[in-house]
Amino acid sequence: MENYVFEIDHLNVWIENKHILKDICNLKIPKNTIFAIMGPSGSGKSTFLKLLNRLLELKKNVKIEGEIKFYGQDIFKIDPIRLRRRVGIVFQQPNPFYHMSIFDNVAYALKANGLIKNKADLINAVTEALIRANLYDEVKDRLNKPASVLSGGQQQRLVIARALALKPEVLLLDEPTSQIDVVGARKIEELLISLKEQITIILVSHTPQQAARISDYVALFYDGRLVEWGQSENIFTYPKNELTEKYVAGRI
């Protein structure tokens, strides 16, 4: 059981009475892997991702049925604030706090959550997060500059550092490179690979090529349903399901 971070079964989600996720069964996210989720837009990928750290429940008129376990524990019985500190998320559009310095962006959650009070510890934690996000060398001389001086790719890594500062066990990423140039995107992909030794990564990917490059496991969502999931090398070369075949071959 400890080998799976999330276990999802019989999951259904309605938003505003619209059936968004339909009977997602027997989906298990193995620990310390990159688990990619792909599918056409509107297939429910973002909805699914936000479910995993209970951000979805902030929306109005959301109805959730079924089972989601986090290390074997029912996530709906975990305090959402605690859960979110353990399961970080990064969105499509880089969204650093533009009014804060680079340093404060990373330090913010630690300070606001009262996790670190001592200045020296804070500096250590911020430095560590920036190093883990592969950004430290690029920003170490301008930690007090506002986040807006960074490029899109750097901003996205800053956002990753901001999430990593809380030392999460899982990082959710929703199409993190779709707004980033190729070089920036490649750096983020390399970063994710290096992170998976310590944490589990669930990545909504905007291209099957990216998913193929970096994921260990991959799932296809289509029209709110889980079509197929499994090890990436199998799915991309020998998909079992015809829809998967069509999706990765670009026939839909």
């Binding site: 090529q209 193929a212 991309f236 070369t237 020998y238 998909p239 998967t244 075949e245 990765v248 071959a249």
Partner: peptide
């Protein structure tokens, strides 16, 4: 085209 699935095979 970075083919996949049947295309790749």
């Amino acid at each position: 085209y970075q083919p996949m699935a049947t295309d790749l095979r």
